[in-house]
Simulated scan of single mutants.
Amino acid sequence: MELFDTSKSVLQEIRLPADEFPNVRLLVKRDDLIHPEVSGNKWRKLKFTIELVSYQKKDGILTFGGAYSNHLLAVAAACKFAGLKSIGVVRGEELTATSNENLKRCSELGMELIFVSRESYDERAEKSCQEGWKEAHPHYLLVPEGGANYYGMVGCQEIVKELPEKVDHLFVAQGTTTTSCGLLLGSDEKTRLHVVPVLKGFDSMAEMRKLLFPFLIDEETINEYLERVEVHSEVHFGGYGKWNPELLDFITHCKTAFDLPLDKIYTGKAFYALMEWLKVQNFQTPQTIAFLHTGGLNNG
């Protein structure tokens, strides 16, 4: 069942001055255009999960997120359109369904919101905690925060099929590593994957290895894949959900100069990392560089 048409995700070419950026062809994969509320990598990560819910004849999805979680909104919208129910476990027992526009919209879409303390939320990945949620809601499929599971990773592999045959460098913002792992598995062995973690102190390689291990099993194979990954770890602007005037000015410039909307949580930081990286390159041969726009504009 195809809920959202990914053909809306066009390839936008960014025209850069040839004298400043020789031999560079820069493309932006506009996954933010797939759907206004299930945009970017969110639909990619949910596609096969939604199919699994239907296959297992479950009532819907139970998942987790913060007060401004794009993932919660995406799950609420995707389930609504698929005729499924949804439950969102939200970090912060002091919150309500009217605390912000994001939670309001989740509620409008039919998502049941359960607010828990930060201490309880931090235990969400523990086996005993997950078993408790499954026992309380047996007719719901439990999905990790951000859609970080096997099905999300497989869904993100499909993005590569919509890129040009030859991509030398592929940039993406990184949160849970699900999208970046999917891109790594789906891309050509000659493509270098650049990941931009938006969390301060985030160990990208360790987290990617953890997600890839059940999928690839063989440690040597995982190492071969990870050799193609370059981490840009110093472009977090202070950490998750933090920014400064320099980043905001950069986002404004990109909208004006390239007609490219970016958010200040994920894509703004990742595209900033790409442009800073390009400034110090001196390509002697033509290079195709692709940037995945992962959406997130609702809260950005």
Rank of each mutant, 00 (worst) to 15 (best):
W243E: 04
E234D: 11
R228G: 07
E234L: 11
E276G: 03
P261S: 06
I265K: 05
P261C: 08
T294S: 08
T294G: 02
L248M: 00
E246H: 01
V235G: 12
T294K: 06
E230S: 11
H236I: 10
E230H: 05
L274P: 10
V280I: 08
H232M: 09
G239R: 10
G296R: 10
V280W: 07
S233W: 15
G295H: 02
Q281W: 14
G241K: 12
G296M: 15
F283E: 08
H293D: 11
K242I: 14
S233E: 13
G238Y: 09
E234M: 15
L262Q: 03
N244A: 09
Q287Y: 04
G238V: 14
F250P: 00
D259C: 02
F283N: 05
Q281M: 13
V235I: 12
N282F: 09
F283H: 12
T256C: 05
E246L: 03
F237C: 04
H253E: 03
F258V: 00
A290N: 09
T256I: 07
V231M: 06
R228A: 07
L292F: 07
E230G: 04
T252V: 05
N282W: 11
F283V: 09
A270D: 06
D263Y: 09
L278I: 15
G241A: 14
H293E: 14
Q281Y: 15
K269S: 00
